[in-house]
C-alpha cells in the first residue's frame, strides 16, 4: 500500500525544496485517471514571491508505483523530457526530480501542468470531433515525424542504453520477449509464432532517433481546435529506429473507433504519409511490417504484465486487471492479421 500524498505532506516537502517561495502551500491535490504505469496528480503551488506578490503555479506530480507494467522510473522519464525539451517537439517543462522513495513511498517528478487542454483518445470518437480528426491526425503524425527528424547527436541521451542502426531491432525484440516470458499469464502460442518469425530477419534502421516508446492517441495534449500542444509520457523513451514509434501508433490495440482508423484518427496509409512529410524518411514497408508485428509483442508483454502484477498482488489498481482482459485478445487478433492468418 502506497503512503498517501496529501496537500500537507507535499507542501512540507516543497517548502524545503523551495525556501525562496514564502508561505508555500499545496492546494487542490487530485489524482488524474492517466495511464497504468505511473500515478499522476495535479495540484496548485501557492506562495508569495520575493516582492510579496501572491503566485500560483500549476503542477503535475508523477509517482513510481510499487510495481508497474513498464520497466522505467522517474529519473528516466525526467531526463527524457529534459533531453527533448526545446528541440522542436513540444513537451512540458520538468521542474523537480526526487529519487528518494522515503518521502512519498516512491520516486516522484514534478512538471509544469499545461491545463485547459485535452488528452482523451475517446473524445476523438465523439461526433463533434469527427470533422476535426484529419487535422488532429496531421498534427500528430507530423509531430511524430518531427521527433524522427531530430538529430540524436544534439540530444543528451547518455542515460539511455547504447544501440546501433544494425542492432536496435534485435535489442528491442530481446527486451520485450524477456518481459513477456517473465510475466506471461498463460502460454501465448500466437505470440510465440510471431516471435519466431521476427527472429528470422530484422530491419536495419535508416537512422537512429529518439524513440518515444508510447506515442499514440491518448499521450498528447491538444486544444479545442485539435492543435497538438504537447507530447506526454516519455517513460519508455530510448534510442532506436524511428519506425518503431510509427508502428506502435498503428497498433490495432489503439483503434479506439473500433474500425480501420489508426489511433481512432486516420487510415494507415494517411498516417504514414503524414509521418513521411516531416520525418524525411521514406517508409520501407517490409521494415514497417516487422516493427508493427514487434509492436504486438511489446503490447502483449505490457498487457500480460498488467495481469501478472494484479495476480501477484503487487498492484491492485483496477486498470491492471482491466488492461489484461480488454487488450490481450485484440493483440492476438492483430498478430493474426499481420501474419496473414486472420
Amino acid at each position: 500500500m502506497m503512503q498517501p500524498i496529501t496537500d500537507d505532506n507535499l507542501g512540507a516537502y516543497l517548502r524545503q525544496k523551495f525556501p525562496e517561495k514564502n508561505d508555500l502551500k499545496v492546494e487542490g491535490l487530485y489524482r488524474l485517471p492517466l495511464g497504468a504505469s505511473r500515478e499522476t496528480f495535479r495540484f496548485d503551488l501557492v506562495y508569495q514571491d520575493g516582492a510579496g506578490q501572491s503566485q500560483t503555479e500549476k503542477m503535475i506530480l508523477r509517482r513510481d508505483p510499487p510495481a508497474s507494467n513498464v520497466d522505467s522510473d522517474r529519473q528516466h522519464e525526467f531526463l527524457s523530457y529534459q533531453a527533448i525539451y526545446g528541440h522542436g517537439v513540444p513537451v512540458p517543462k520538468m521542474l523537480l526530480l526526487e529519487n528518494d522513495a522515503a518521502h512519498f513511498g516512491g520516486a516522484i517528478s514534478i512538471a509544469e501542468d499545461m491545463r485547459g487542454f485535452h488528452n482523451s483518445e475517446y473524445q476523438f470518437q465523439e461526433a463533434a470531433w469527427l470533422p476535426k480528426l484529419p487535422h488532429v491526425a496531421k498534427q500528430f503524425y507530423n509531430c511524430m515525424g518531427d521527433l524522427a527528424a531530430v538529430d540524436v547527436a544534439k540530444l543528451d541521451l547518455s542515460f539511455m542504453p547504447a544501440t546501433t542502426r544494425e542492432t536496435t531491432a534485435l535489442q528491442e525484440l530481446d527486451n520485450w520477449v524477456e518481459k513477456l516470458e517473465k510475466n506471461t499469464v498463460e502460454p501465448e502460442p500466437i505470440c510465440a509464432a510471431a516471435i519466431r518469425h521476427l527472429r528470422r530477419w530484422q530491419p536495419v534502421a535508416t537512422k537512429l532517433a529518439m524513440v518515444h516508446g508510447d506515442l499514440r492517441a491518448g499521450n498528447f495534449l491538444y486544444n479545442d481546435d485539435g492543435d497538438l500542444i504537447a507530447v506526454l509520457d516519455w517513460e519508455m523513451a530510448h534510442v532506436g529506429d524511428p519506425l518503431e514509434d510509427l508502428a506502435w501508433s498503428l497498433n490495432r490495440a489503439f483503434c479506439f473507433g473500433k474500425d480501420d482508423r489508426r489511433g481512432g484518427l486516420v487510415s494507415r496509409a494517411q498516417a504514414i504519409a503524414h509521418w513521411e512529410e516531416t520525418s524525411g524518411i521514406k517508409v520501407d514497408e517490409k521494415a514497417l511490417h516487422w516493427w508493427e508485428l514487434f509492436a504486438c509483442i511489446k503490447g502483449q508483454a505490457i498487457w500480460d504484465t498488467c495481469g501478472a502484477i494484479w495476480h501477484r498482488n503487487q498492484n491492485r489498481d483496477v486498470i491492471y486487471a482491466y488492461a489484461s482482459w480488454w487488450l490481450r485478445n485484440t493483440q492476438d487478433r492483430a498478430i493474426l492479421e499481420l501474419m496473414g492468418k486472420l
Binding site: I190, A253, F256, W326, L327, N329, D332, R333, L336, E337
Partner: peptide
C-alpha cells in the same frame, strides 16, 4: 491445423469491447 485452431480460439475469446 494449428493456425486454424489459433484463429478459432481467438474468435472464441473475443470480447465485444475490444478495439479489434
Amino acid at each position: 491445423h494449428i493456425w486454424a485452431e489459433l484463429r478459432a480460439s481467438t474468435e472464441r475469446r473475443k470480447i465485444s469491447a475490444g478495439n479489434f
